[in-house]
Design a protein around this nucleic acid. Structure first.
Lengths: 335, 335
DNA sequence: AGTGCTCATGGAAACGATTCCATCATCATT
DNA sequence: AATGATGATGGAATCGTTTCCATGAGCACT
């Protein structure tokens, strides 16, 4: 059935050809000390045999499989796609493979995925967490090396501080939202809505805070992770509250849904409704009208997170990356 | 430094608690034959100890690491993101981890990545191939279990047929292009351009074939994998050939670039130029004007490819998934 | 009763690397 | 010249699983 082909060349073969012991070969190849002459003989033999150390053997011995895992809610979302890209590009320079899983913003799937990783003895993981702190706390206790990206999660109990030590790479949503809201209120808007997705509680909290007295709790709505749900949430909000004059979409899928729903309901942007969207995606400029957005350095978030988990040096608690309001044509003064 | 914590429970512990040999435990757990009583005792012990077999040990023994690798040109491209999603969702049901790499449509990076996978003893890979047949042929000879997705590559020599056996999941570009071109010629267009990206030679070939006598080789242009390059290619074509009245973009990034370039150059779509884009992305509808597209079932491509590589049953050579022309507002009769 | 067959079973040998530890040579110091 | 320190070296153990093989029990048939 399978190819009976020539056995893979092992460290033993190299040792034999070089006339040394396997231990010496291992040492030379992983930068240990050896005499110049031996080193040369080993290296020679290795190249002659085109020897590639088997990750399998190494992994078993070291009780950990190499590589990094990456958990995102939805790889189809441009933001997370860029985040992945950032991780991938950093990991590449370390020659570490990246295993990706999508959680769909669902705690159960997330727990499943993490369980699978544990089974693989993966011990490094970058996650956009969806689940409860409980699960992550136990994962950390199990020795998993976690870095949070885009959002984080806190220790459930007031005693357990495990999660509070987990490094995280976030975007500065708070300040992004603040400038966005300043911009909108400057245009005269008072009734400002927020379209959120499950798992965006940090962003919602920032919105609430930035809105201050203006906050109308009825104007923040939640959608689940799907496009349909986003559309339903947007359409529902627009129909329910005719007095709404501006809305902030918590992500590009929400923004897309908002544009679509507005079009469907004959709500004109920006004449009837001003729209600001989180995340600057290429189509925001192509859209009609071009969308004013809060740009986030998605790729950098991924890259930095990967650095944190891979370099593993002395690491800062949390790094926060700047956001930027890019004004295009989807906002107008309140009429 | 590392936790001195309680040793991971191994198969040996289970055997001990159940009062049987390790071999028996292994058999029971992997569905071998055993007496009812033994089976129960083993299962009991396993649950009591919360035993999870270590993938590391298994992998070493079986000389192959589990999981699937997936190579795409650019995960930031909506089409490939959806393809990934399809693969991920299929792999999930098999509980197989997926390792993703991006090639950037570059043969060298691709070869690097494949080398890395070999080192990891990954033996199953789904790839959108960029490189030459040589590399893939040698990978197949090395025992790699390859399935091509979205496009394929043929054996370099006329003797070596290794690659021709590799299964592939493709979209029916040929028929998609044919209907698109029929549509355009029906609107009176004769000078039809094609915006391609490196690695899209199959699509270009299909375009050439479908164009027949109408083909003007000067109207097909190539871009590299970046957004800038796509923009440059589109702008170059539009400026160089004022007689162009219609253009087909070979992918959504090319389409985006075409819209942008047209806008920049005051070329009005569809009045001055009709545009059809490969791949129906959400923003195509949001764009102004909404874009006529050749829709491709990206997610299905991924899913089917994953099925092929994971089920590994008797497998068909190649499966071709239908495309669909979705007419929106980016094409108009030639004036 | 003896022979042959089918099972369940457990010991032990892989798999390929790293790493502990003992050995030995070399060299400097007393 | 004897001792100690240093450094290079290789044998062997180890990681956790699967799988080969031998053993022995149970049973049916001659």
């Amino acid at each position: 059935m399978s190819t009976p082909g020539p056995r893979r060349t092992t460290i033993k073969d190299v040792a034999e050809l070089a006339g040394v012991g396997v231990a010496t070969v291992s040492r030379v190849l992983s930068g240990g000390s050896a005499s110049a002459e031996t080193r040369e003989r080993v290296l020679d033999a290795a190249t002659k045999l085109d020897y590639r150390p088997s990750a399998l053997g190494r992994n078993l011995r070291q009780q950990r499989s190499g590589g990094v895992a990456l958990l995102v809610p939805d790889i189809t979302d441009g933001f997370y796609a860029r985040l992945c890209d950032g991780v991938l590009s950093c990991a590449r320079s370390y020659r570490e493979p990246v295993t990706i899983g999508v959680t769909g913003d669902d705690a159960e799937q997330e727990a499943d995925l993490v369980g699978g990783l544990l089974e693989q003895s993966m011990d490094r993981i970058i996650a956009v967490p969806s689940g409860d702190g409980e699960m992550w706390a136990s994962a950390v206790r199990a020795g998993l090396n976690v870095v949070f990206a885009d959002r984080r999660v806190w220790s459930p109990g007031q005693h357990a501080r495990a999660l509070d030590e987990v490094p995280a790479v976030l975007t500065d949503d708070r300040s992004g939202l603040r400038t966005a809201i300043e911009y909108l209120t400057g245009l005269g808007h008072r009734k400002i809505g927020f379209l959120a997705r499950q798992g965006m509680s940090h962003r919602v909290a920032a919105f609430r805070e930035a809105m201050g007295d203006l906050l109308d709790e009825d104007l923040v709505v939640f959608a689940r992770a799907s496009r349909d749900s986003a559309y339903a949430a947007a359409a529902g909000l627009f129909q329910r509250r005719a007095d709404l004059t501006a809305v902030i979409a918590g992500g590009n899928m929400l923004g897309e849904a908002a544009v679509l729903a507005a079009r469907e309901l004959y709500v004109r942007i920006p004449r009837d409704l001003s729209l600001i969207m989180f995340d600057d995606v290429p189509w925001a400029e192509l859209c009609s009208p071009p969308l004013t957005v809060i740009a986030q350095p998605a790729s950098d978030v991924g890259y930095r997170a990967a650095e944190l988990v891979l370099r593993h040096g002395r690491r800062p608690r949390t790094v926060s990356l700047p956001t930027e309001l890019i004004v295009r044509s989807s906002c107008a003064p309140r009429r």
